[in-house]
Design a binder for these strands. Sequence first.
DNA 1: CGTGACGTTGAGAACACTCAAAAAAAGTGG
DNA 2: CCACTTTTTTTGAGTGTTCTCAACGTCACG
Lengths: 242, 242
Amino acid sequence: MGLEEVEGMNPLARKLQRLGRVSEEDVQHVLALPAIVKAVPTGHYLVREGRPATECCVLLSGFACRHKLAATGARQIVSFHLPGDLLDLQHLLLSVADHNVQTITEAVVAWVPMAAIRKLTAQSQAISDALWRDTLIDASIFREWVLNVGRRDAKTRIAHMLCEFAARCESAGLGSASAFELPMTQEQIADATGLTSVHVNRMLRALEADGAIARDRRHIRIADWQNMRSIADFDPAYLHAA
Amino acid sequence: MGLEEVEGMNPLARKLQRLGRVSEEDVQHVLALPAIVKAVPTGHYLVREGRPATECCVLLSGFACRHKLAATGARQIVSFHLPGDLLDLQHLLLSVADHNVQTITEAVVAWVPMAAIRKLTAQSQAISDALWRDTLIDASIFREWVLNVGRRDAKTRIAHMLCEFAARCESAGLGSASAFELPMTQEQIADATGLTSVHVNRMLRALEADGAIARDRRHIRIADWQNMRSIADFDPAYLHAA
DNA sequence: CGTGACGTTGAGAACACTCAAAAAAAGTGG
DNA sequence: CCACTTTTTTTGAGTGTTCTCAACGTCACG
């Protein structure tokens, strides 16, 4: 089964179109890449630190996170991933993985041989640019996370993470930024923000008490987005979405 | 004055050779790029957040840092840069800067028009790969910084920063990793590690008291590198230097 | 209806922060 | 080269945000 046979609007095609001036023909070339599509369960490792990668994993549905471990065993999530995301473009040019990628929900992924992608990037400047641009946007998000974890207090930090997730979901066509479902546990939010799950819990309730968000289970509503932006110190410029 | 006229072994040429299979001819093409070389003082801004960038800045001598500001005014340094580093390759494909770049010492920089670089990357796959690879390594370092700031305690965090800086200096040919000069103030170390300068001072003295490092002003000696690696939780794999 | 994962709450401890001030070093100008 | 200023480093005392440990509640699922 190939990428072009994925049901519904292909999230990868959508993402490519967002990334730049990629022609319809180029998108077709990408979707024609040889791929093995698989359904994987929650918690499944897609990339392992220290392992060489010869295939590129595309997330077609579900959510994933990228994480690293400290010597103490503490885990730091360095990014979350949505349908359409290319999960290891790094390995197009870096031979060994420096982090793990793991699903946080059930997911459907496509495995594409690196060699096939390299061939395509050599042929099409537009595709090469789009993929490079994608890795640059990832890097921009990492920079923002360094700031988030390094210089914001717990409440702001969590609010920022929520804003970013909401904005990215909306821009990926997964629904509205003002009402969405969180796929991650509070412990995963903790690992992403450099806090403990206990403190994440307290701060989520504090955000709720402040009226910044409304919660029902994992469902989040942001009634006043301008207010939330200000509480979260969130300026979406770093997402380079436009 | 062009890049090829820089005195001594050109740090950019050295870096390109480290980045991949770039032929002597390709290196010459890079050095032949039109460039305006300038000496700039300490604290000079090379890139400003929010500004579009049409030129790429190459650091030829001296040191620089990349930083972002939180709404509270707190500053987070997200990376340090050494001679040979390309300071805004991001802007090859992202039109607006999402962070600042500022010198932390006197420096000499070369300004190269983006258009000229784009032309070169379109012509040579090897150069394009080398530059893309450089941005991917930057991203890997950002990921490590998220972990460093998010999940390591203050002493480990500072030790890690020192190890990284030492390793990068050595690999850039600026001297030995076991004895080097720090170009940054303790306040800048604080901004890079998400701490206060007061606490950085205490932790540096603690590292000294532990025998992990020896200091004289900004000069650092690491007698037992294996010990320091272990204290710092430092594994250089993420630098993808090999 | 049991079991395990996830979320919630409380009490006490700790790591890092704030404020403040002095000492040392590095620039600056006469 | 010395007096002066500014920046950087160092030290102390008290505070607070976040952590740790521990327990209990709740929900999903078999």
